[in-house]
C-alpha cells in the first residue's frame, strides 16, 4: 500500500478526533470538513496509476493503460457539491445558533436548554 493512503487515513482520524473532542460547534464543523476531505482524497488515490497521464484520449487511441481512471474524479466532483451544500446548511444553523444563544460552545447552549429535553413553553 502506498504511503499516500496513510495520509488519507491520518486525516480521517484527525477529523473524527476533532469532532469528538472539541466542545465548540464550529470546531466540530472544521473536523467534519477534514473528515470529508480525507474521503475525497482516498477516492482520488484509487484512480492514480504510476506513469499514467490525465484521461484526455487523443483520437485513435484505444489502450487504457496509459491513462488514469477518470470516474473517481467525476464521483468526487459530486461529493464536493454535497459537502458544499452540507456546509451551507451548517453555516446557516451556526449563525442562527449564535444569534439565539450568543455562543457556539456546546456547554453554554446545553445549559440554556432543559435537561429532560422538554421544549421550553
Amino acid at each position: 500500500m502506498s504511503y499516500a493512503y496513510w495520509i488519507a487515513v491520518a486525516l480521517l482520524m484527525l477529523g473524527l478526533y476533532t469532532m469528538i473532542v472539541h466542545r465548540n460547534l464550529f470546531k466540530k464543523f472544521v473536523g467534519m470538513t477534514i473528515f470529508q476531505t480525507a474521503i475525497i482524497l482516498f477516492f482520488l488515490l484509487v484512480s492514480i496509476k504510476r506513469d499514467a497521464s490525465i484521461p484526455i484520449v487523443p483520437p485513435g487511441t484505444t489502450a487504457a493503460a496509459g491513462f488514469m481512471n477518470p470516474l473517481p474524479h467525476a464521483l468526487m466532483l459530486t461529493a464536493i457539491v454535497v459537502a458544499v451544500a452540507t456546509a451551507g446548511v451548517a453555516f446557516a444553523i451556526l449563525i442562527r445558533l449564535h444569534a439565539a444563544y450568543g455562543s457556539l460552545e456546546e456547554d453554554v447552549i446545553g445549559a440554556a436548554t432543559p435537561g429532560d429535553g422538554t421544549p421550553p413553553r
Binding site: F29, A90, T113, P119
Partner: peptide, 15 residues
Amino acid sequence: GPALAAAFRYLVLGT
C-alpha cells in the same frame, strides 16, 4: 432555539 442545536448535531452525525 433548541431545535437548532439538535439540527446541528443531526447534521454532524448524519454526515
